[in-house]
Design a binder for these strands. Sequence first.
DNA 1: CAAGATTTGTGAATATTATAGCAATAAATT
DNA 2: AATTTATTGCTATAATATTCACAAATCTTG
Lengths: 206, 206
Amino acid sequence: METKKIPDIVVARLPRYLQVLQHMKQEKLVTTNSKVLGDRLGISAAQIRKDLSQFGEFGKQGTGYSVDFLINTLRVILNVTDAWKIVVVGAGDLGHALAHYQGFTNRGFQVSMVFDNDPRLIGKQIGAFTVQDTADLIDKVRAAEIHVAMLTVPASAAQKVAEELVKAGVTAILSYAPIVLNLPHNIQVQYIDPILQLQHMTYYLE
Amino acid sequence: METKKIPDIVVARLPRYLQVLQHMKQEKLVTTNSKVLGDRLGISAAQIRKDLSQFGEFGKQGTGYSVDFLINTLRVILNVTDAWKIVVVGAGDLGHALAHYQGFTNRGFQVSMVFDNDPRLIGKQIGAFTVQDTADLIDKVRAAEIHVAMLTVPASAAQKVAEELVKAGVTAILSYAPIVLNLPHNIQVQYIDPILQLQHMTYYLE
DNA sequence: CAAGATTTGTGAATATTATAGCAATAAATT
DNA sequence: AATTTATTGCTATAATATTCACAAATCTTG
Ligand SMILES: NC(=O)c1ccc[n+]([C@@H]2O[C@H](COP(=O)([O-])OP(=O)(O)OC[C@H]3O[C@@H](n4cnc5c(N)ncnc54)[C@H](O)[C@@H]3O)[C@@H](O)[C@H]2O)c1
Ligand SMILES: NC(=O)c1ccc[n+]([C@@H]2O[C@H](COP(=O)([O-])OP(=O)(O)OC[C@H]3O[C@@H](n4cnc5c(N)ncnc54)[C@H](O)[C@@H]3O)[C@@H](O)[C@H]2O)c1
C-alpha cells in the first residue's frame, strides 16, 4: 500500500520516463537530469522532479540521476521487474502483429497465449504461438495464472470476451476494439483507438 | 478560428463523445442527454455540458441533445466532415493491419497510400493498395496532397521517415514507433505505444 | 393548459495540477 | 579550502480543470 495517494496523471507519465531512460541507457548515458529528461519528453524539469519526489529521493544535488538506478526504481514502482504474461484474444491482423512483436520482453511483458473462435484459425501457428479455441479460454487462462490481456476482437464481440477474461482471472485489459467496455471497478481497462487520436489532431488542421 | 482558446484536454474528449454518439445512432437512438452520455463514458454529466458549451448551444432544456445533430456538430468541430487521406509508412505487420482496416471510412479517414523501403515488399499488394517505394514518398505524397500519416516503421527509422513526411507536406503524424519524435512545432504528433498503457495498468496490480 | 418533471448552459465554488523559486547539497575549479 | 556552478526536493503560488447548483426553458401528463 502506498503511503500517500499518487495522482493517476503522475502514474501515467512514469512509463514515458522509463521509455526515455531505456533509450538513454542504449546510448550509454550513465547519468541524466530533470532538464535533459524534460527536453526529450516535452515536459518541464520541475514536473519530472515533482513526479519522482512522490516516490522517494532518487537524485543527487549537483549531479542529477543515475540512469540505471532510475530505470530500476521505475520498474519497481510500475511493477514490471518481471515479465507479465499476456493473453491475446483475436488472432486477426492486430492479434497477429502483437504475437509477432519482439518489443515486449525488455519492457516487462511477454505474450503467452493467443485465442480465436474462428475454426479456420484455431490450431494455426502465429509466430511462436498456436492459436487456441476461445471455448477453452477461461480454463486455460486461469490455469496459466495470466492477469493481463490484449483484446483484438471486433467491437461486437469485445464486451462478451472481456467478461470471459474477467472470469478467467484477468485484471488488466488493453482493448483495441473501438467501444467502451463495461466491467467491474477493480478491473483495469485501457483503450487504443487510433481514430480518436487522428480526430484530436484534425481539430488543429486547416 | 475559434473565438476563445479551447483547452486541449477538452478537444481530446470530443472524439470520444463522437464515438459513443455514433454507437447510439446505430442503436437507433434519436435523442440523448448529458447524463446518459456521461454514464456510457464514465464522465460526469456536468463535464460533458461544460465541454460542449465551449463551442455553442447544441441541446434543449428538458430534452437533451439530438443524436444526429450532435454528431454533425462534432464532425464539423473536429474537422472530419470529409474523409482525410492517410499515408501509411511501413508495410509490416501493423501497416498491414491498418491497410486492411475497414473502420476508417465512416469516421473521417481513408488510407490512400502505403510505402515501404524493403524491395521484397515494394510492388506487392496489401488489401487495396500496392506498396510503393519510400524513395518516391516525398513527391507522391505531396502530389496527392495528403496531410495525415500513420507511421509504422521500426523505431530506428522513425525520425528520418517523419522528417520526410513533413517535407512532403504532412502536418499530422500518428506514430506507432516507441520513440519521441523531434519535429517542428506546427506539426501535430500523437503516439500509440501499448506498453506505456500496460505499464500504467500494472502499477495498480498486485 | 397548469403543475410537475427534466435537462440545459453557466457562474461560482472546489479541487487538482503545474510552475516558480530557493535552501540544501554535491561536484568542479581555482 | 574557498568559491563557483549545477541540480535536487520541496514549499508556496499560480494556473487549470471539475463539480456544484440553479434559473431558464421545454416537455409530459392529467
Ligand atoms: N486493424 C487495425 O488497424 C485496427 C485499427 C483500429 C481498430 N481496430 C480494432 O481492433 C480490433 C481487431 O482488429 P483486426 O483488424 O485485427 O480485426 P480482424 O477482423 O482481422 O481480427 C479479429 C479476430 O477476432 C476473431 N474473433 C471474432 N469474434 C471472436 C470471439 N468472440 N472470440 C475470439 N475471437 C473472435 C476473428 O475470428 C478474427 O480473427 C477490432 O475491434 C478493430 O475494430 C483495428
Ligand atoms: N507489431 C506490434 O504489435 C507493435 C506493438 C508496439 C509497437 N510497435 C511498433 O510499431 C512499428 C511497426 O511495427 P511492426 O510490427 O509493423 O514492424 P515490422 O517490422 O513488421 O514492419 C516495419 C516495416 O517498416 C519497413 N521499414 C523499415 N525502415 C523503413 C524506412 N526507412 N522506410 C520505409 N519503411 C521502412 C520495414 O521494411 C517493415 O516492412 C515499430 O516501430 C514497432 O516498434 C509494433
